[in-house]
Simulated scan of single mutants.
Amino acid sequence: MRMTDTFIKPMHPEGRKFVAIFAVITLVLFAIEDVLGWIGVGLTVWCYYFFRDPERVTPDAPGLVISPADGVVSLIEPAVPPRELGLPEEALTRVSVFMSVFNCHVNRAPVAGKVEKIAYKPGKFLNASLDKASEDNERNSLVIRMEDDRILTVTQIAGLVARRIVSFTQEGAVLDRGERFGLIRFGSRLDIYLPEGVEPSVKIGQTMIAGETVIADLSK
C-alpha cells in the first residue's frame, strides 16, 4: 500500500458539493483573518473525510450478516421492527450501531437479497445513541428478503446533527452483501433486526467496520 493511500481516500459523490461549500467559506475566512482561514481548512478536511468511501473486503462465507455501518455497537436488545413496514408485531433481536461525526457514513447491505419494502418516517432529531431514537427520530427502513426466504430489516436513523437520510436503492432492487445502499449526513445510527432465533456475535462497545465486521451467522 502506498503512503498516500493511508491518508487519501475516495470520496462519495454525495459529498462533493459540501466540500466545495466548505472550501469557498474557507477562502472568505482567509480574507478576514488567517487564523479563521486555517480553522476553515481543518473543517474542510473533516468534511472530506466524513464523506470518504473506502473500498471494503466483504466476507463471502454463506450465512453471514455484516455491519451496515462504521461505528460502535450501542444497543443489543429485543425490539419490534418499525411499524410502518407492516411486519408482525413480534420482538426481534436489534443490534444498533452508532456513528459519530468522525465515522465513514456510507451504509452497506448487511445481507444479499431483494429489497422487498422501503418505508420512510419523518421524526425528531434526538441523540442517536439514545434508545428512544429508534422510535422518535426520522428514519428510513429496508426489508431485505434473502435467498432462503427469511427477511432482515435495517433502519437508517437520523441523529442530533444529522439532517438528511440518503437512499441509493429502491423497492425491487437486488443487493449484494456489502453493497452501498445509502448514507446519513453528519452523525446517526443504524438498527439491524435479526431474523427470529439468530443470536448476534458482537457485544456492546465493539467497533464495527461497514461491509466487513460480522454481526451474526444465520447458519448457526
Rank of each mutant, 00 (worst) to 15 (best):
D217L: 07
E135N: 08
I39H: 14
I151T: 12
P78K: 05
R2D: 15
T169E: 00
L190I: 11
N107T: 04
G211Y: 03
I25Y: 12
P10N: 04
V214Y: 05
V28Y: 12
D70I: 04
F102G: 06
T6W: 11
A162T: 07
Y193N: 04
L92R: 10
V174S: 06
E135K: 08
R52C: 09
L27G: 12
M3V: 14
I151V: 13
T213E: 07
I25H: 11
R16Y: 15
A61V: 08
D136W: 10
I66Y: 00
A109K: 01
L85H: 06
I151W: 13
S141Y: 00
V97G: 01
K203N: 15
Q170D: 13
R177F: 02
M1S: 15
R2I: 14
A119D: 00
N137I: 03
P59R: 00
S74M: 03
E33D: 15
T93V: 15
V161T: 13
I66A: 10
I21R: 14
L190P: 01
G15Y: 04
L36H: 05
D136P: 14
V174H: 10
G205I: 02
M11C: 12
D131N: 10
P200E: 05
D60C: 11
T207V: 13
V198Y: 03
I215G: 07
N107I: 00
V72N: 02
P54M: 02
L75T: 12
E196S: 13
V35L: 12
L87K: 10
R177M: 08
L92M: 12
E179V: 08
G182W: 01
P88W: 07
V106A: 01
I215N: 11
G197C: 09
G42Q: 09
E14L: 13
E33G: 09
R185S: 05
L43A: 11
T58M: 01
P122C: 02
D34E: 12
D148G: 07
S201Q: 14
V73Y: 01
A210Y: 00
S100V: 04
R145M: 05
I144G: 00
N107V: 02
L85M: 11
K117Q: 04
A79Y: 09
A162V: 03
P54A: 06
V97K: 04
V95Y: 05
E171A: 09
E138I: 00
F51C: 09
N103L: 04
P10E: 05
D149C: 05
D149Y: 12
E179D: 11
V80I: 11
P10W: 07
L126N: 13
R163E: 01
Y48F: 14
P54Y: 05
R139K: 05
G182A: 00
L183R: 00
I144R: 03
G63D: 02
D148W: 05
V202I: 12
G123P: 03
F7E: 10
K9V: 09
D191S: 10
V35R: 14
W38A: 09
I8W: 12
L27N: 07
E90S: 13
E33H: 15
V198E: 01
G205A: 03
A69T: 02
I204T: 15
R2Y: 14
S141H: 00
A91Y: 02
V19A: 13
D53W: 06
A128R: 03
L27I: 10
N137T: 06
D149S: 13
G178K: 04
P110H: 10
W38E: 04
I209P: 01
H12N: 07
E147V: 06
P10S: 02
D60H: 13
